[in-house]
Write a protein that binds this DNA or RNA. Sequence first.
DNA 1: CATCTTATGCTCACGGAGAGTATAAATGGT
DNA 2: ACCATTTATACTCTCCGTGAGCATAAGATG
Lengths: 302, 302
Amino acid sequence: MTADLVAVLVAVTEGTPKIMTIAGGSALPSGPFEFTHRSLQTALRAWVEAQTGHPLGYVEQLYTFADRGRSGDAKGPHSVSISYLGLTREDRVGEGFEAHWSGWYDYFPWEDHRAGAPAFLAKTIAPKLKTWAKAAPSPTLQRERWQRCAITFGLDDRDWNEELVLQRYELLYEAALIPEAGRGHGHEAPVVPGKPMTADHRRILATGIARLRAKIKYRPVVFELMPAEFTLLQLQRSVEALAGRLVHKQNFRRLIEQQELVEETGAMAADTVGRPAKLFRFRHAVLAERAVAGTKLPLSRT
Amino acid sequence: MTADLVAVLVAVTEGTPKIMTIAGGSALPSGPFEFTHRSLQTALRAWVEAQTGHPLGYVEQLYTFADRGRSGDAKGPHSVSISYLGLTREDRVGEGFEAHWSGWYDYFPWEDHRAGAPAFLAKTIAPKLKTWAKAAPSPTLQRERWQRCAITFGLDDRDWNEELVLQRYELLYEAALIPEAGRGHGHEAPVVPGKPMTADHRRILATGIARLRAKIKYRPVVFELMPAEFTLLQLQRSVEALAGRLVHKQNFRRLIEQQELVEETGAMAADTVGRPAKLFRFRHAVLAERAVAGTKLPLSRT
DNA sequence: CATCTTATGCTCACGGAGAGTATAAATGGT
DNA sequence: ACCATTTATACTCTCCGTGAGCATAAGATG
C-alpha cells in the first residue's frame, strides 16, 4: 500500500483565486509521501518547496480517502490519498519551476456569483437538474431530489450558500452532468460548463474551496494570500474572490478595523484611480492575542 | 506501509459523555484498514459493527497522521493512522461484545465546567503553567507563553472557550505536565489529573471532543446521541455534557423550537420528579429541508 | 471646473442572543 | 389539605451585531 499527498495550493492574484496545477491544468499536484519527514505537514511543505521554490504559508489537512486501484483490477495496488490545503502567493514561485496557476473558477464556473448568479445556472444547470430529479422512481423521491437541488444551488428563491461547493459538485456528479461521472459511455458532450480534472481531483478541489470559504469567516487566513502591504479594497477583493460573492464595503471595513486585524503602514497606495487609499499590514499579533479572530463576511444581497 | 483506523466513538448516557475504549480504558479502538471495502467510511462502519454489534449513526473523519515507527527504529514499519469520530448510543451494544465505555472526562477532567471551573485548574494547573511560562529563555517568550496559557485555559479573567480542547492538551503536553509527554525519564508522578492513554490516543480523543463541541453549535448532531424520544431537559443535559458547560434553559428551548428541530410525540415522560415533560422526537426532515440547521448553544456565564 | 472614482465616516433599523420574571403542573412530606 | 420542592413553559427586556444606506472627502481626468 502507498500513501500519496495531494495539494490544493491557493493564491489570489488581482482578484482571481488560483490553484496550482500540473498536466496542463488537468490535475492537482500530487506525489508519494516520503517517510523521511517527521510529519505529514513537514513532508508536504518540503515537497511543495521543492516544486515551487518557495516555502508554504498556512497549511491545513483536508481529507483522506482510499482508492481501490483505478486501473480496474479489484485486488491491485491500493493507495491512500491525503489531501491538503495550502495558502501562498503566486509571485512567490522561484526560478526554473514550472508551477502552473489556473483560475479556480475555470473548474467551477457556477461558483462565481460576484457579478450575480451566472446565467447558465438558471438557463442550463437548473433545467438539467430538474430533469434528473424527475427521473427518480417515486414522486416522493422526485421531490426530495429537487429539494436537494434547490437548497444546494439556491433555486426557487432560496439564498445562495457559497459554502456548499462540495455538495454542488457531488450533486452534479450524481446527476451525471459532468465528465468525471462518465459511466463508460465513451465521451459525452459536456453538459455543464467547467474544466474537468483527472480522477477525483476536482472533488478534492471542491473540498478545498469549501473549507477555505468557511474558514475566512472565522479565522484571519485571508492575510496569507495578501502581499505584506495592501489597501482595504484589495483585501476586500481577495475575500470576494474566494467567497465568490460581493461584500458590503463599509461594513467590511468596520469589521476589519474593530477587530484590529490590521494596522496602518503610514504610506499610501500609489498609482491608483480615485482617492488614494491607506496601506495596511496584517497585525500578526492577533494570532497570539486571540484564539478565534473572526472575519465574518458582511455579505450583501445585491 | 500500513493504514490503521482509529475511532472516537461517542455516546452520552445519563448526562455523561462516554467513549468506547479497549485495553482497560487505555486506548481507543483501532485496527487495520481492510481494503475490501469501498471507502474508508464503510470500512469503519463494518469494523465498528463487528466490534460492538450495532451499526453506527453519524460518522466523520477527524485527522490523518503518520507515524515513524513507535518501536524506536528510524526505518522501521511506518503506518498512517486515519481517525474517525462516530456517534452512537451506549445501549446499542449487542450481546457478547466487550465494548467498554469510559467517561471522557476521566481523560480530560479539566474540560468539565458544568459545575464551574474545576478547583484544581486554578490550584494546580495554572501555577504549573506559570512555572513553565517563566522557564522560557527571554522575557518576550515568557510573556507569549503565558498569554497562550491564559487564552487556552481562560485564565486572567478571560472567558473559558470550550472548543480549545486540543490546544489545551497540546499545551499541557508541551509543558510536560502529562504522562504522555514523558521524555524518557521513566515514570514521573502525574502532575495533572486525568487518565493517560497509549501513544497519541488522548490527542486523538481531544481532537474528537473539540470537533464535536464545535459541531453541535451549527449542526443537529446531538440527536444521534439521543434515544428516539426524549424530553427537552434530557436534550439539554446531553448538550451540556458534551460542551462541558451549562446552558440557559429557556433560551435553549426557544432555539430548539423556533428551528423546528423537534416535534411532540404526544406522550409525556413517566417517572419524573416535578411537572411532567412532553416527549419529543427529532424531526429528521430538517436534514433534508436545510443545508445548515444550527443549534447555536445559548451559553450562560453563570 | 465639472465629473468620475475611490476612501472613509456616520446613522438607522432589525433581529438574535443573553438574561430575568412569572406562572403552571406534578410529587412528597407534615 | 397545605406547603415546599422540582420541573415545565410562557413572556419580556435589553444590548449588540449585522445589513443597509447616506454623506462627505480626496484624489485623477477631461
